[in-house]
Design a protein around this nucleic acid. Structure first.
Lengths: 155, 155
DNA sequence: GCCCTCATGTCAACTATATTGACTTGAGAG
DNA sequence: CTCTCAAGTCAATATAGTTGACATGAGGGC
């Protein structure tokens, strides 16, 4: 469920660097791992995992989103969404209601319990980021964001 | 095999920010995606994927590594390593030989073909990083590394 | 009222990546 | 000859995703 636990995995910096930028590649990998590690542990304790969190995260920021729009934002198929979404509905972390005028669409919303879990999971990720930004200072944080934007937009 | 293709997925910045640090969470996600997108496409064309690349990457930087050590570095189980490793051996991208004195261990090494594929895949990741670092300048790159180190070491 | 479209829902089969547990093989050391 | 240990293999399971096919149900056009 989680790639975490004792899989301390790669003790960073144990590999020879063949290229100058190898350190950057590895930092991206370990950075992603480091940011999500605690959140994944928390989610696993709730019987949830990353895809559930992604759904909760998006719905929290787009209340009354329709299923089709959610599928687009997540970039997965309807069928892949189906299982985790139904679990969240069964667990009453999400509600779906038909829209008044657009009766074809179902609108998704977090319940109070869903909000709590979304917040706790995302908080764990934000905590890691906040600590790193505090160490780096405001200018370091801004530089990090600028580099990440350049990478994200490189497609 | 690849999460890529038309799954342009989340057009960045389409979500309302509930917290100041939400942008950072999303940038980490898109940054990872952005860095690995082209490499994953290339690997998919070779009939390979991320786990194969991880194996090739590590073996390239630790020639004559034993299987046990590889398992530790990758942080996966022996059984999970088995399939992708055997594929790489069948395809003659890796060779394994018994060590002269430590006959119990098999030592892994890249073939010329394995080196070529490892290099091409990693090059695509490095290219993305290099472009982002060029845009950010040397100080921006250093700041990015410092922040990522703080995140990676936060466990 | 009848049909077409379209969002949603569901079923089945498949692939890939991982897990744990149990067992075999093969070489070295005593 | 047996014990240990690295490596290999087999089976069952979970998770996360895919495509394809088809059902349902509401709105809109005529």
């Amino acid at each position: 469920m989680s790639k975490t636990s004792q899989a301390a995995g790669l003790h960073r910096a144990s590999l020879a660097k063949l290229h100058e930028l190898d350190a950057a590649l590895e930092l991206m990998y370990y950075g992603w791992r480091g940011m999500t590690l605690e959140a994944d542990d928390y989610l696993a304790k709730q019987g949830l995992s990353r895809p559930h969190h992604r759904i909760l995260y998006v719905v929290a920021r787009r209340p009354d989103i329709a299923i089709g729009a959610l599928i687009e934002i997540l970039g997965i198929s309807k069928q892949a969404l189906n299982r985790p979404l139904n679990l969240l509905l069964e667990r009453k972390l999400l509600t779906s209601k038909r829209s008044p005028e657009q009766h074809r669409s179902k609108l998704l919303r977090l319940t109070a319990a869903g909000q709590r879990i979304e917040q706790k999971a995302s908080d764990r990720e934000r905590k890691v980021m906040r600590q790193a930004f505090e160490r780096a200072g405001a200018s370091g944080a801004a530089a990090w964001m600028a580099v990440m934007e350049a990478i994200a937009d490189s497609n």
